[in-house]
Design a protein around this nucleic acid. Structure first.
Lengths: 204, 204
DNA sequence: TTATATTTTAAATGTTTGTTTAAATTATGC
DNA sequence: GCATAATTTAAACAAACATTTAAAATATAA
């Protein structure tokens, strides 16, 4: 094995990740991946047996990327207000760093929901996080409105995600540049945080 | 021309609309469309010249469906509070009726933003609606926080849309049925309305 | 060095893709 | 009814598809 740089297997996986994220499973051909990796077309099947197997491996990684840090934040031992801010901020940074991730996950799961089945145990962590207990506690104390994880999850993650999923539409509708969109997104992020906190917490 | 029922052209267009919405452009084959329409494979090209042309025609219709009613509501001569409620309610009904529409538009525009270029004039109506003026007026009067159309649009439409785009993910994460999801969605719709109004309007 | 195992290659596999063809069928206008 | 136009059909098209093959090249281990 050549030990300078990545192995061929890694090169292919990274290239495939890039192309799948950009074009989705249906829009990606084996040749696209081979070209991106600058490798022979046969190597994809030599290392991963099929396009589908390679996709599923990458999909698993990306689903992890999509949820793991959020789960970790939900499980942190910090006050609710802080957790809300950190969650929104993290989602914002995540979609900024990996702009194709959300629409990719949404679209692939929409077309074939059963792709999530092998990761059901992983997904369950979302609803069983510390945040759930934290919400119940604060509700009992009368500090916040009665609200469950299922309703706060989209607020903390989904709203921001939507802004970036609809980036191209926004840019056309409001006729703005990338830079202007970035300003808008930052602005909207702060509105979301204010709005959630303003809504959730009850006046003393 | 046979005048009982639809024309062949209409049959094909309707079938194509159905399949494109479900599987997207890349995931749809000419034979899928012909099968769905129960028509000969050659008729797609006889009536629409190519798969691409047929797609663009349908895409235009769907983009209209996605935006037109919202634009109309934005232009209504009704109080802001009422307009907010009506917008959210309309979005909710729209995505319930056409569950694949939002992810379809999002995904196709994400892959190829230039598909929106022919409809730029149509899209401009969103930001030039009466709602924009209405917001400025209320801001000057000190009734609401300073906020622009670009920030209120996602609140009125996007948040609800996200809930339905992520339907399959939600159902797996929270292990609920279709019926339970419907209850959740309804619930979240009301939260969104409360949250927006609670945030936008300043106390007298 | 030599034998063996791993990796890479060009070429070919059989399907499926979008699209076209030319003939067959049906409708239309006089 | 008959000529013409419009529609529908089965079949074929080349190109692109995922995947396989078998030989060539390279690395490994003795």
């Amino acid at each position: 094995m050549r030990c300078i740089g990545q192995s061929s297997e890694e090169k292919i996986k990274e290239a495939a990740r890039k192309v799948f994220l950009k074009k989705g499973f249906d829009g990606t051909t084996s040749r696209d991946i081979a070209n991106e990796a600058e490798m022979n077309i046969a190597l994809t099947n030599y290392y991963f047996r099929s396009k589908e197997k390679l996709f599923l491996e990458i999909f698993k990684d990306l689903l992890n990327l999509y949820f793991q840090d959020t789960i970790d934040i939900f499980n942190k031992d910090i006050p609710l207000r802080e957790k809300i801010i950190e969650s929104v901020d993290h989602t914002f940074e995540m979609v900024k760093k990996e702009p194709d991730l959300v629409i990719f996950i949404m679209n692939e799961v929409h077309k074939e929901p059963e792709r999530l089945v092998p990761d059901l145990n992983f997904l369950r962590q979302v609803k069983n996080s510390k945040l759930a207990q934290q919400l119940s506690d604060e509700i009992v104390k009368g500090n916040i409105r009665p609200i469950g994880v299922e309703n706060i999850l989209p607020m903390l993650c989904g709203y921001i995600q939507f802004i970036f999923m609809g980036k191209n539409i926004h840019m056309k509708v409001f006729e703005v540049t990338e830079e202007q969109f970035a300003v808008f997104a930052e602005d909207h992020k702060n509105i979301i945080k204010d709005m959630i906190i303003n809504y959730i917490f009850l006046p003393k």
